[in-house]
């Protein structure tokens, strides 16, 4: 089962990646290979195996509701390509 170019384009969009035609074809091959391997895994009978939601056997890791100091504003904005009035400035977004 091979992914369509449309599907690869959609996945790239979700990951915010711009792909040219060569890359599109390259990743179509690679992603399809990965999926084919999952097809093989799907042949294993897992009827009596509960789904794994967490690879490590931890549960109920919580903390108390205590406040600790935040970082200074200038540290938070240190990596911002553009800032304005203490905010990150980004390209226009609409709801």
């Amino acid at each position: 089962m091979k992914l369509s170019r449309e599907e690869v384009r959609h996945i790239a969009l979700l990951a915010r990646l711009g792909l040219n035609d060569d890359e599109l074809e390259k990743f179509r091959e690679q992603l399809s290979d990965i999926l084919e391997n999952f097809e093989i895994l799907k042949q294993v009978d897992t009827t009596d195996v509960p789904p794994t939601r967490q690879p490590i056997a931890l549960k109920n890791v919580v903390r108390g509701d205590e406040v600790a100091p935040s970082l200074p504003q200038e540290d938070i904005l240190a990596n911002a390509p553009r800032e304005e009035e203490g905010c990150f400035r980004v390209r226009a977004v609409f709801e």
């Binding site: 890791v61 919580v62 970082l71 504003q73 938070i76």
Partner: peptide
């Protein structure tokens, strides 16, 4: 003031570890 209640976790920096606030649960 903007961005004064922020740390690497709520800023979404790579490699940080969130922990559940029990009171919220």
């Amino acid at each position: 003031s903007p961005n004064t209640h922020v740390c690497p976790i709520c800023l979404g920096m790579p490699g940080v570890l969130p922990i559940i606030n029990q009171q919220a649960a």
